[in-house]
């Protein structure tokens, strides 16, 4: 019972303390599905299975997360979350027949697993992901630490798998700081 609070403190996206790697500012492949021009000097930090996580100032402040192909029936975030969070099999899951509206909801519910609050989405619209038909939306929330966050989500279902890029940052300062660069990164997506 009394160890519960310490387990609550598992950081949101980072799992282990593996080394940080600088991303070269040349074309970078994301999995084997597409490639991007990074635009900034990102550092790659360790992340959950199926994700790549890049940051400039630290993953709690700003990050670009690449969700590299969630299969039908899989959760967006896999692996341990915190004490009391539902196991993988009880988490909200991606389905290939999902509409962009469903996917926006899937994101919100997946972020709620981390005890984020006041989750809202806005501006859901169709938008190309590379050459594929995709979607974009914005998301805001308050972290358990009380920090107000904002995110831009771009994604598409490619070969029955959900691919997405989530740029998120502290709303007051970090999110606006790299937004333009991330917009360019998104335009640079080229399917392989």
């Amino acid at each position: 019972m009394r160890t519960l609070p310490l387990l609550l403190l598992v950081p949101v996206l980072v799992i282990a303390c593996a080394p940080v790697k600088l991303i070269e500012n040349t074309r970078v492949s994301i999995g084997d599905t597409y490639s991007v021009d990074p635009q900034l000097r990102w550092a790659s930090v360790p992340a959950r299975p199926g994700l790549d996580l890049w940051t400039v100032d630290g993953a709690a402040l700003d990050s670009v997360m690449f969700i590299k192909g969630v299969a039908d029936g899989e959760a967006v975030f896999r692996g341990p979350i915190r004490s009391g969070a539902p196991d993988d099999d009880k988490r909200p899951k991606f389905r290939t027949e999902m509409t962009p509206s469903d996917i926006a909801e899937l994101f919100v519910d997946s972020y709620a697993l981390f005890r984020n609050q006041k989750l809202e989405t806005a501006g859901l619209r169709p938008e190309k992901f590379g050459t594929e038909d995709g979607f974009r939306f914005e998301m805001t929330w308050v972290t358990p630490a009380g920090l107000e966050m904002q995110a831009l989500v771009a994604g598409a279902i490619i070969k029955k798998r959900l691919h997405a890029v989530v740029y998120s940052g502290a709303r007051a300062h970090y999110f606006p700081k790299y937004r333009d660069a991330v917009e360019k990164l998104l335009t640079s997506i080229k399917l392989q």
């Binding site: 009394r2 609070p5 972290t143 920090l147």
Partner: peptide, 23 residues
């Protein structure tokens, strides 16, 4: 409990209170 909370870098009311209410 509180030191553990501080280690994360960002510690907010919900975490603190979760910790405190279990204490």
């Amino acid at each position: 409990v509180l030191a553990g909370a501080a280690g994360v870098g960002f510690v907010g009311p919900l975490i603190q209170l979760a910790a405190l209410s279990s204490v």
